[in-house]
Design a binder for these strands. Structure first.
Lengths: 202, 202
DNA sequence: GATATAAGTGACTGGCCAGTCAGTTATATC
DNA sequence: GATATAACTGACTGGCCAGTCACTTATATC
């Protein structure tokens, strides 16, 4: 029976969106609460009505970032395409994510370096990684069973694929002119898939 | 004819070493100049006799970090082993570096996220990347010429290898229990090498 | 239009810390 | 041991900013 409609969900989104923009432009430390306030069209005091601290905003952003990414990847296991095709589909999903989140890149890497110093952040990254691993391992294991791939530890293959998927954007940070995330992820994954198909298991 | 011997080189090293330890424990923002002073056994004022600012210390550290790594990698091109062997040798060098610099990991990733916001840092990363690329591209190109590898763009192959070499430590940050940097780099590189040798170009 | 209360505000404060500098100590040279 | 000067010190300051709170505004309900 409150005399006003609840706007808290709306405000939270509003603040997180502003924070996303400000953080990716300035980084976490350079970004000021007043910047987020301005960007969101609210006052600094109002930010504190919806979030306890700057840290809480960061953590919320992290959740949102990985939640979006994981949701997109969760619908892949039970198709009955070949293992190779499914790896390629998975790859395209990841590429799509990365392209649409190019603006998030600075934030993503900032989180990674935060992970060394904050248990909570470490946790989020680990569960993200493990969900990836679970998916890819399952696909590779199936490929091995069906004789599509040579007999290799699926975990090793999944880590190699993960390294290409995550390592290519990292190289892009090193040199944005030379590295093109989509095409270089594709060629890297192709090489690994070739490696998985050919020869004998060492 | 100075009445005292010049200790500035010694002091600079002393300070950089202390900074390395402090930064990797606390990260750049949490680390205080007073922490570095204490760790180095000098006073805060003395730090400013040898470095203009905290930033200058960070930049010096960055230089030292990549300089060490690059020096180890510069002696590889003119051997006449097979391209595959040379890639494997190169891989082992990188692994050695990474193992001996495990403690630097947090700093390395902190630099990477700094790169988005500081031109100078970006520069250092780019030249590091390009030196890597030059070496690996040359090896791959030679392998292609000799018919050891299938005909593929050496740049693509070099980026794929770089992605595995840099991406594996990144996954290690995500989940230090699951990922073992040396063995997973090795298996990733093997997969790519297999991919390079087998089949036809696509 | 009176009341109640949710929503919002922004000047202010308390703590922190990079960087300074007036003063101290150490030692080479005579 | 007197002098000169390089090396060093650490209490202090000025600026910055996360977070606060006394106050204002908006609006639902009667």
């Amino acid at each position: 029976m409150s005399p006003k409609p609840d706007v808290s969900e709306k405000r939270k989104k509003q603040i997180i969106n502003a924070a996303q923009k400000v953080f990716s432009e300035l980084g976490f430390h350079e970004a000021r609460m007043s910047d987020i306030a301005e960007e969101s069209g609210l006052s600094k005091g109002t930010l504190y009505l919806y979030f306890e601290s700057k840290d809480e905003i960061i953590l919320n952003l992290l959740d949102k970032l990985f939640e979006t990414e994981l949701r997109a990847l969760r619908k892949l296991i039970d198709q009955d395409a070949s293992a190779e095709d499914r790896v390629l589909q998975y790859t395209e999903r990841v590429i799509d994510d990365m392209v649409s989140m190019q603006a998030w890149m600075p934030i993503a890497f900032e989180f990674i370096s935060l992970a060394f110093h904050r248990e909570t952040v470490q946790e989020v990254l680990r569960s993200y990684f493990q969900e990836h691993m679970k998916t890819v391992k399952a696909i590779v294991a199936q490929g091995c069973q069906r004789g599509e791939f040579k007999d290799i530890d699926p975990e090793e293959a999944a880590i190699a694929l993960g390294a290409v998927l995550e390592g290519t954007p990292l190289l892009w940070v090193y040199d944005q002119k030379t590295v093109d995330i989509p095409s270089h992820i594709r060629s890297g994954v192709h090489l690994i898939l070739n490696g998985l198909k050919s020869g004998t298991g060492e």
